[in-house]
Amino acid sequence: MATALFLDCDTGIDDSLALTYLLAQQDVEIVGVAATAGNVPTDVVVANNLAWLELCRRTEIPVHVGAQNPIASRLRTAEDTHGPHGIGYAELFPASTPPSDLDAAHGWLRAADDHRGELIGLVTGPLTNLALAVRADPELPGKLRRLVIMGGAFGVPGNTTPVAEWNTVVDPEAAAEVFEAFSRFDAPDPIVCGLNITEQLVITPAHLCRLRTDSGDALLARHLAEALRFYFEFHDSQNEGYVAYLHDPFAAMVALDPDRVSGIAAHVAVELNGALTRAMTVADRRGMLGPPNAQVVTQADTDAMLDELIDTLAGYARHLNDA
């Protein structure tokens, strides 16, 4: 049987790669894609998700419109990082398929009820929609097979503030609510992929050349390359080199195979009040804040993961081109 997966994302360049990687998996059934405001506003995220799905001929997958704003703060977006439309220099045709009539929070609930105990939840954007879903059904954590979150920074500097990571900064209250929900409920602890590990999955122009060459310069590969070119330029402007960190594809790969990584059990809490530390993720390994509510990923063979990612995307792009 195919693995049921629900993706919540703020697409986004690296979200785009994560989505296409998941679409390439023959044994994965994406039962829904929720659009979260983050890298770009919700309506742009919806348009991006629909466009990628149409390009990949997967318009049967419902796209759920999420909240327009974070739970308790003003929305901030990252067009400087991802481009004015969130997908860098890629120019996708607008999709002809409309989004689902079911909003993102209720998309979560329906997917969890339809695949109770089997659903893999993957969040590569802010946790707004999931927090709203848990508010509507506090038992939701116990209905999931596992939850994988891209978010937080553990033992490393943040990428948005000196101590905090982007997804958590956008909606720290939502992140705090989700971790607290898993503290209260007897459910598998979320697997958390923070900057300490996702910034080890680094793509370079050489990888991009390999993607296009191995795909036969197929259309999907060209669009992904155009998106990534913007991402390279952004990282270069930040004095990080002409490279890009693939945070969200890392989390997608972990969602499908958690055994490829190792980590530590910790009680993760989110700072909400600090003037300098708001949105900081605190991982307590000693039980001072309570029992573990997360598995924080600390180690992975990122070289092997990157090779697999490039091979998968190139093969999928070639398949679409030949079909």
Rank of each mutant, 00 (worst) to 15 (best):
A221N: 00
D303S: 14
E60D: 13
D171S: 08
E79F: 10
T3A: 11
G12E: 01
N167V: 03
H207M: 08
A35I: 14
T97L: 07
V261R: 00
W52D: 00
F250P: 02
E180I: 11
P157R: 15
D114F: 01
M150R: 06
Q25M: 15
V28R: 13
A221P: 01
V33D: 00
A105Y: 01
H247A: 13
G152D: 07
R229F: 04
E240A: 06
L140N: 08
G107T: 09
R318D: 09
V261W: 00
D189T: 15
L92I: 00
L19R: 07
N167G: 10
A133D: 11
P249K: 00
P157S: 15
A317G: 07
D257R: 06
L102Q: 13
P84F: 03
T59A: 08
L122W: 04
G121F: 01
P41D: 12
D311N: 10
T281C: 15
A153V: 04
T298Y: 04
R229H: 05
N49G: 08
A2N: 13
R184L: 15
I30L: 09
A105C: 08
T81L: 06
V192T: 14
G83E: 02
D189L: 15
I149N: 02
A35L: 08
A174K: 11
R260F: 11
P141S: 13
A206N: 14
G38F: 03
G32T: 08
W108Q: 09
T36Y: 06
A104R: 06
N69I: 12
H115I: 03
S73P: 01
T36I: 15
Q238W: 04
H85F: 07
D301M: 09
L201Y: 12
D303G: 12
V148W: 00
G121P: 12
V44F: 01
G152H: 05
